[in-house]
Simulated assay, not measured.
Amino acid sequence: MGCTEVVIFMEKVPMTVRGEQTLREELEILLKRRPIISKAIGEARELGDLKENAEYHAAREEQGICEAQIRDIEYKLSVSQVIDVTKMENTGKVIFGTTVKLIDINTDDELTYCIVGDDEADIKKNLISVNSPIARGLIGKLEGDEVSIHTPGGVKEFEIEQVQYL
């Protein structure tokens, strides 16, 4: 009877250079907190009975949260594929990482979005996920194209005014 080898392929997740940098900064902060939390646990342990020691339990809980965050960030970085659009030729085509200036055909409102990975998305900062309806409708289109995109709020029609590889 032979051994069966199981190979798991992790799908790479696109991430911008800015997104990777932000995650690395968060990880650095968390790694610096580790020894501080360990020291707090040690000091709380010295206070005596651990069953009724609120400081000890609070420090252990903080340690658990910190370690979970470290694992989460390390995983995200391990499966990320960092895409630097500044090193690509600007063909006017909308791709992951580009900043797209749109004009709403019905209202003449100007909108600007940067297409980023799921973990980087923040609509308040005009960072939209590559998997959002608007980004999916824009990917592959060219500067000057008019597009109709089905969104949860209905069909939106845009003209792609500018595509920037920032």
Score class of each variant (00 low, 15 high):
Glu143Val: 01
Arg60Trp: 05
Thr107Gly: 12
Lys87Arg: 13
Ile160Trp: 14
Lys51Phe: 09
Tyr56Lys: 06
Ser129Gln: 04
Glu74Tyr: 05
Thr107Cys: 10
Ile83Pro: 13
Ile95Pro: 09
Leu77Glu: 07
Arg33Cys: 05
Arg45Ile: 00
Ile73Gly: 10
Val130Phe: 09
Val17Tyr: 05
Gly140Ser: 11
Thr16Val: 05
Thr4Tyr: 11
Glu61Asp: 13
Gly92His: 09
Glu143Gly: 09
Thr98Tyr: 02
Val17Gln: 11
Gln21Glu: 15
Gly48Ser: 01
Lys51Asp: 13
Val6His: 05
Glu5Gly: 01
His150Val: 12
Leu111Asp: 09
Ile8Met: 01
Val85Trp: 04
Ile115Gly: 12
Ile128Asn: 12
Glu52Lys: 05
Gly64Ser: 15
Arg33Lys: 12
Thr16His: 03
Ala135Lys: 10
Glu20Asn: 08
Asn126Leu: 06
Ile115His: 13
Glu67Ser: 13
Arg33Glu: 04
Lys76His: 04
Ile115Thr: 09
Ile149Arg: 11
Tyr75Met: 04
Ala58Asp: 12
Glu74His: 02
Gln63Thr: 05
Gly19Ile: 04
Gly19Met: 08
Arg24Pro: 04
Glu61Asn: 12
Val147His: 13
Val130Met: 10
Val94Tyr: 08
Tyr75His: 08
Leu138Gly: 12
Lys39Trp: 05
Val94Ile: 11
Asn126Glu: 14
Glu28Gln: 13
Val100Lys: 02
Asp109Gln: 14
Ile70Gly: 05
Leu111Val: 11
Ile73Trp: 11
Phe158Val: 10
Asp49Ala: 03
Leu138Lys: 10
Glu143Thr: 10
Leu50Thr: 02
Gln164Lys: 05
Phe96Val: 07
Glu52Trp: 01
